[in-house]
Amino acid sequence: MRNLFLFFFSIILLFSCSESKVVKIAGSSTVLPVISQAAEQFRLKHPNIRIIVNAGGSGVGVNQIGEGKLDIGMISRELAQSEIDRYPNTAFQTHDIGRDAVVPVVSSEIYDAGIQALTLAQIGDIYKGDIRNWQALSGPDREILVLDKESSRGTRHVFMSAVFNDKNAAAPGADLVLGSNNEEQTAIVQSDGAIGMLSHAWFNADVKGLSIILADNKAISPTLENIRSSAFPIVRALSLVTNGQPEGDVKLFIDFLLSDTGQQIVEDNGYVRIR
């Protein structure tokens, strides 16, 4: 037993002595897959720089930059004035790395039954709790399972801004509150009558993105072209946030993301490149 302790302790000491640099990143689960994959590739080129990536949501990314616990925060929405005010000593700087859409998504059973496009007003009615059955939207006679997200999530801010003009709007019609995109995707797959909000990189055979019907009755589908041209009404920038101008390893990593290789990773993950 004692030998085991000694063994582990010497490993710790050994590693504490070795020279190596760390970049700490946390925040939006929408940006996470890009950064996580980019970090793996970046590591191949710069073996002495280690990049530690953590989830938590956009709010976490901003707060922890403000509290000085991170080198880079990941956000999938704009910085709020209240956040800038909360940390007066922090010089927030955002760096866009890609574009994305927040799309109202439904279970494939609903999509296949004919509901493939909705207006923002209809979506608002669902989240307010005024529409509770798909039948009201000429879908099947099935209750709507309304999925909301935790209040600090960037996806929710962007979605609620578009639907209610208020990023913190309450959703009295919601049935479940979920956290990461993965968790929301899982809940939609497990249900046959769900609606939720997801980045369009999370579509799959059971999770279908809806088109949005605009005022002129034109339905805009969440395709890469429509996101690139901002024709789709709920688009957003995926960004990194730092305290002041990035320097050293942090700059190196951000530059890597904006390089052709980095932008290819953005595209591989289902988002739109900006360069």
Binding site: V60, N63, E67, E150, S152, G179
Partner: peptide, 11 residues
């Protein structure tokens, strides 16, 4: 479990 880590300390 869900929200404490996502909430700004001191708020």
């Amino acid at each position: 479990g869900r929200e404490i880590a996502e909430t700004a300390f001191g708020s």
